[in-house]
Amino acid sequence: MKVKKKFKGLSDKAVGWLFIGPSVLLLLAINIYPLVYAIKMSFTNFYANKIGRVPEFVGLKNYIKVLNKEAIWEKMQVTASFMFWTLLLQAIIGLGLALLLNRKFKGNELLTTLIVLPMMLSPAVVGVFWTYLYNPQVGLFNYVVNFFYDFGSFDMIGSSMLAPWSIVIVDTWMWTPFTMLICLAGLRSVPNYLYEAAEVDRANKWQQFIYITLPSVLPFLLLALLFRGIENFKMFDMVVELTSGGPGSATELASINLKREAFEKWKTGYSSAFAVILFVTIFGFGNVYVKVMNKIKER
């Protein structure tokens, strides 16, 4: 047998590095380096606007300051409630829509495309145009609500009671399609013969849902919620455009507060410590969540 002359050139490993090299470099430059730098700065009294002043090492002072500040805990609470309601609504509505779209009917594909549209818009743009929709005088949102039940005049963004809900509604409107798409992928992976077997075994529709559908989509839904949770923990652009954290600090999420401390008050060292705390929080929660998710998947 004739064997072709061995190709002489780069080894497989070298080719591999060549492919991933650029992205590793980019990641190091714009993600890892700033992270390390921020951790370093969090132990100093650095002020980025005070040029020429040499930052001094202050130990854990910044961290103690952040954790002892009551306002920070208020922001955390605002963030937590925002996350809780958005994730809950997106899970329920997303799964519901996925179940509907998983049926065969005319116009199914067109409808899916339409539902997915909000997800493709820029969050800042969404924030801006919802300020118009929420406008108490001419806004469509108030008109539609009053059409069904006359609440009289109300201001979604202006009222400190309604403003947190205004951002929950917009985020849910924008990102439910995401959970829906992932759930739909999960539903499509369930083989039809399982439903046939269940039907022959005389299970009703509810049992089919509980025994077959739900366990099959649950891992998918949890994954979608993980993505949404991480995104919403650091939610910034949409809320800034919509309410800029107001009224007062009713919708001031942790990330918005962080930006104010860092780039309005220029307390760089202090806000670096805050950022590190947020990072550790989400990293910790994320890891625990992934562990739980894998347990459920194995079940």
Binding site: P191, A197, V200, Y211
Partner: peptide, 16 residues
Amino acid sequence: PASRDVSFVFQQFSLY
């Protein structure tokens, strides 16, 4: 199918 009360062994097992 449910009211016919038959049992079916499918070729592809179809266990839950």
